[in-house]
């Protein structure tokens, strides 16, 4: 089982990454329980990929390190995505990563359990999860867990954050386990590969009501 964390924090160390790690620490073992080995966790730090993300828009294709990150995300059984709040929304870098991903592979997140989280300087932005992140991942056809986690600066010294992390992590783990256990009759949607599943041409012609080609002269 594979859990991929996408963190859009910019400073080092970053509270965004800190929140991401705490969520992963709850979700990874819970997703595989009662197996002793937790899910494999891979962290994608968008800061390291910022230039390659921008170049995807100017070049039309992802550079090697970004392509690796896209492959990790596409292969994940579950995702934890965490962004700092910039100007009342997710950061531009965070959105650009998912823009570039969906241009490269529009079905990368289809059916994938995603835990949304954000950090900010004030609790006034906590609904950013509901008005910005949740619609974005709904559009990308992900399965967004019910509990999102927002951590304002003050939350790091207050009660309550732990409980939200526990609840959200457990919800993600349950979805990951549920979506990957065949005994529950649900399997992750198989990755569509347009190269291997090309529609036979006669089918395309038939759909348009066009007869096949004339015999060769």
């Amino acid at each position: 089982m594979k859990l991929v964390v996408v963190s859009a924090g910019l400073s080092v160390p970053s509270s965004t990454r800190l929140l991401a790690d705490r969520l992963a620490a709850v979700a990874a073992p819970a997703a595989t329980a009662p197996e002793p080995a937790p899910a494999d966790v891979r962290v994608v730090e968008l800061r390291d990929l910022a230039v390659e993300i921008a170049h995807t828009f100017t070049n039309g294709f992802p550079a090697p390190a970004l392509a690796d990150a896209f492959a990790e995300v596409a292969a994940a059984d579950g995702l934890i995505v965490v962004t700092p709040v910039f100007s009342a929304s997710y950061s531009g870098l965070f959105k650009s990563f998912f823009d570039a991903l969906s241009v490269t592979d529009e079905d990368a997140l289809t059916g994938k359990p995603v835990l949304i989280a954000a950090t900010g300087g004030t609790a006034r932005h906590s609904l950013v999860l509901e008005h910005a992140l949740r619609p974005l991942f709904a559009y990308l056809k992900a399965v967004v867990v019910p509990t999102g986690v927002y951590a304002a600066s003050e939350d790091w010294g207050a009660e309550g954050l732990d409980a939200r992390i526990e609840r959200a992590g457990a919800e993600l783990a349950a979805l990951m386990a549920g979506l990957t256990t065949p005994s529950k009759g649900r399997t992750p949607s198989p990755k569509r590969d347009s190269f291997e599943e090309v529609t036979p041409f006669a089918q395309r012609l038939a759909a348009l009501g066009v007869p096949g080609p004339s015999p060769a002269p």
């Binding site: 347009s194 190269f195 090309v198 036979p200 041409f201 006669a202 395309r204 080609p213």
Partner: peptide
Amino acid sequence: PEIAEQAAYY
């Protein structure tokens, strides 16, 4: 890939 398929078909 649809266009590669078209070229192949003809």
